[in-house]
Design a protein around this nucleic acid. Structure first.
Lengths: 152, 152
DNA sequence: GGAACATGATTGAAACGGCAACTATTCCCG
DNA sequence: CGGGAATAGTTGCCGTTTCAATCATGTTCC
């Protein structure tokens, strides 16, 4: 039944898709590079940054994994590394013996505070300040749509 | 001189940035997952796909690395893997003894042709078909701007 | 209550990617 | 022309990520 010929992308669609791929890769790479002087990469910063905003600076592993879009296994490994650096600690999750609560330490919070301005400047320079307010708003709508279309 | 207080992101700016991070990660992850049945990941598909569009199905390593935004080292490793699967071959680059020309094999081309429709459907379902034509156009402009701001 | 199933997290091994060192070639310029 | 600098690519090592298997706890339902 379904046509065997796929619906190819129009010129505009293809340009958009290619620009998204290339631009996205370049952006992530640059943000990672900008974090090297602080001794971490973006995915690690995301973790301690999310923790710093959470109530009591703590989140359950599974919830955190969902927020930062990482596999449970990856978060386990990364959390172990962050723990070794003294930025987070593990504790049993109250009320559910399966859960683990990840908590930001004083040193971890200090690291977030130290890193945030530089990272923020990086995001501004490479993304936000390159766009008009209208583009920023549209980009937010687009990526929210994409994201929502992906949750299950 | 420069203010010590950074210019924080406005609510809209922050929402956009977070949605971009999350949505981008989710999208890339989904596209990778959709390629598993074909025995490759997105970054590998990009390589053989670009080769399939190039004159004589061949490109110089350095040029290809720039196009797909991968480090030379990474491309070397990946090319070796693709070579082992019989999808590409290496040859000296004519006219420049330092260069290496990567060529798509018959089998490699067949693999691209086999994979393209499914991958295309994936990009459509998860990104393109979720957006209005106006959004698609704007997204293209945005990501082109971001990309151009990053060259050099 | 307990068997079957689902969920949360960890583990170890293998695959992948980044970095720095290295080789080979080409370019630049006196 | 020749020596130093730049460019292209590879290599080995090591840190990171994935994958499948595992363990522990929770939930469901007869």
């Amino acid at each position: 039944m379904g046509s065997r010929e796929p619906r190819w992308l129009s010129t505009t669609e293809q340009q958009t898709w290619r620009a998204f791929l290339r631009g996205g890769r370049q952006l992530m790479e640059a943000l990672d590079r900008d974090l090297v002087p602080y001794g971490m990469c973006l995915s690690e910063y995301e973790i301690i940054s999310m923790l710093s905003e959470a109530p009591d600076h703590q989140l359950r592993m599974s919830e955190l994994a969902t927020i930062v879009v990482q596999s449970r296994s990856r978060l386990t490994h990364t959390a172990t590394r962050l723990e070794r650096r003294g930025w987070v600690t593990r504790a049993p999750f109250p009320g559910d013996g399966r859960g683990v609560l990840l908590t930001l330490t004083e040193a971890g919070l200090a690291k977030v505070i130290e890193t945030a301005p530089g990272h923020l400047a990086s995001v501004r320079a490479r993304l936000i300040d390159q766009l008009t307010p209208a583009q920023i708003k549209t980009l937010g709508q687009i990526m929210t749509t994409v994201s929502e279309g992906m949750e299950q």
